[in-house]
Design a protein around this nucleic acid. Structure first.
Lengths: 214, 214
DNA sequence: TAGATTGTTAATCGATTAACAATC
DNA sequence: TAGATTGTTAATCGATTAACAATC
């Protein structure tokens, strides 16, 4: 009996990808609660989505459900984690140990999902040498050497906007392949580097929705 | 000469609303740089968007541009701020002064956009009585009284997920109209309270996109 | 069995993009 | 003037939703 279809990550739309973590969280909780199977309808109820949307989304992970029953919880968790590539370790650095940066260092949930923040970097001598939530802060001068030595593929950027593009370029030069950009600046990828992905995280857009629609 | 059209906030799509803060940021910077006019094409270049998308988006704010020239910077800032309701004060409380909560308290940009975080609330006696970035932390027992007394309309939720729904219900009861939900739990609005808006902010969805597409 | 659920195929909806006249 | 830009109307694209047969 087949449990999984082959998956094609490029076939998944961005809205679908963005919903998957919420599904995973619910299914993990269901496992803790002792559920062996879970239906798309249940997940949809929990998230106030349409069941058909949940089924369509889950299909991209390659999971095969059982009509009348739903999905086997263990298999669904595995399918989601595998699709998201959250079942392997992503070596990352965080640059900019300010308010937001240190908050992210303390966000233990990321680690459960394969995000291994190995070190933080800053220019502030008061911060350098300290550890925040078990993660050491180094001088930004050591960034290049660290990234190259430790096969770092991901970087979290929480620096002031005026230095963001420079840091970004350096990270790309050193081999970083994906950058999670929390600065307010839209970063440009150097020409011809289509192997690099930058994801912008923008808190003010959520506030805008709240403010306009309220 | 007409400068503004009438605006209809319900006519604006959510993707459009989410892009407006980025436009505002660029136009504000243009003002600092001494520009008197700015074209949609310039804004599009900066954000790597299509000019037609920028023009369509800006149209919802009621701004009227000049063919061949662009938009008058001062007017465009006013139109964006007005449309976003960022030109008036939104009295808010923050509940849950943990890592993320205190980082948000330190995010001074929000204040420039009308978000007035008047106080923070927590259960941790080590935090109660302290101030973070000028904002006092009170016992969560004082939440109700504070919200009612100070005409608080907005709440930022950075509490652990297992208490989130309870706090949410209490806030709604006390008159809060919009809730910015940073917890991992999807909050339910009590039946019949369609006057309340909850905006979920989900960091893991950005990480998912980065991880899948990289 | 009856009924709930999956997964596929088709229809709908809405956002983005294109085309182009009007403008300065 | 020539050319860049706006704003409107139409076309396209892609995501969501609906319909329904297959399944247990």
């Amino acid at each position: 009996m087949k449990k999984f279809r082959t998956i094609d990550r490029r076939a998944a739309s961005t809205p679908t990808i963005r919903r998957l973590p919420a599904y995973l969280q619910i299914v993990r909780q269901a496992e803790l609660d002792g559920f062996v199977v879970i239906s798309g309808t249940m997940i949809a109820d929990e998230l106030e989505l349409e069941p058909i949307q949940v089924r369509k989304d889950l299909a991209v992970t390659g999971i095969i459900g059982k009509p009348r029953v739903g999905y086997i919880v263990k298999d669904l968790i595995a399918a989601l984690e595998n699709f998201l590539r959250w079942d392997c370790t992503h070596n990352a650095v965080l640059v900019g140990a300010g308010h937001l940066g240190t908050a992210l260092l303390g966000h233990t949930e990321f680690r459960k999902n394969g995000l291994n923040i190995m070190a933080a970097f800053d220019t502030d001598t008061n911060k350098i040498g300290n550890t925040f939530h078990g993660i050491a802060v180094y001088s930004i001068d050591e960034l290049e050497a660290f990234v190259q030595k430790n096969a770092v593929t991901m970087a979290i950027l929480t620096v002031p906007p005026h230095v963001a593009q420079d840091i970004c370029n350096r990270l790309i030069n050193d081999g970083v392949k994906s950058i999670w950009n929390f600065t307010s600046l839209k970063l440009k990828v150097p020409d011809g580097r289509s192997d690099v992905l930058i994801q912008k995280e923008d808190l003010s857009s959520g506030y805008a929705v709240l403010s306009v629609r309220a």
